[in-house]
Amino acid sequence: MQTSAAKNSAGAAIGAAPPGKSRRQERERRLRRRSVIVATISTFVVLLLLVVLIPMAPGWEKVQKAFFNGPILIKVFPELLQAFLVDLMIFAWSAPIIALWGLAIALCRDARGPALFPLRLFAILYNDVFRGVPVILVVYLVGFGIPGLGLPRPWNSPYLWGTVALVLSYSAYVAEVYRAGIESIHESQRSAAKSLGLSHAHTMRYVILPQAIRRVIPANMNNFISLQKDVALLSFIGPVEILRQAGVQKSLLANFTPYLAASIIFLAVTIPATRFADHLIARQNKERS
């Protein structure tokens, strides 16, 4: 940010200078090149140290065999990829429900007028409880507890109630993000909509929410990235998804490499998603400045 700002002002300052590079531009170019060289060398040195020093440790061979076992990696990879489809499936149907239910909670929280106080109270309690309780407890409680009340199949499915648990927990986080977004929209937008004769509901639907939701997309992306990882918690109540499959392989092979394989698969999804969220945040910051 800073260098580009400096560059711009420099560019403006020499606007009248003849074409070609000014001394200042030349100096900045040199500085940039030098910092690239320094970064490259230091990265290389650190990597070299890691690659050379770690294998010199006396226990490396055993660690390598237990965590970085090539043949095991190749052997378990297809199965884990298959199991990852279960994660993707659960994510695919949970995420939209969380987005909508979170929005509903955020709107309850924003409800105005004394008659709607119970809604507001509900939203406040909901957020406090589900953001405070570990997701795993909600998964157990809802995933085993509610079916335990005597629901017949297929209404006691761990997929169903596990999804409910994820929705309960994550919509609380998502609702908070939405609420921050709604509150970030300047009061003058409400005034403008009201002055035109729009109702509170219309103002929310057409004026506030479209802006608020767009503004919090990056923050919500982070929520959904961690949801992608927490989908694995459903394995506690039965579904054999990637982390469970890795655990099974681990105990059959007495080796931790299956977890490494699972991590690689997770990273293949979460790194691009995180980069994308960062990119959105950076773009938004630029738009605002």
């Binding site: 079916p147 006691n156 761990p158």
Partner: peptide, 12 residues
Amino acid sequence: ADVTEAMKANQI
């Protein structure tokens, strides 16, 4: 313990 819990919940 979790297996028996799932049996009680009639999930398995």
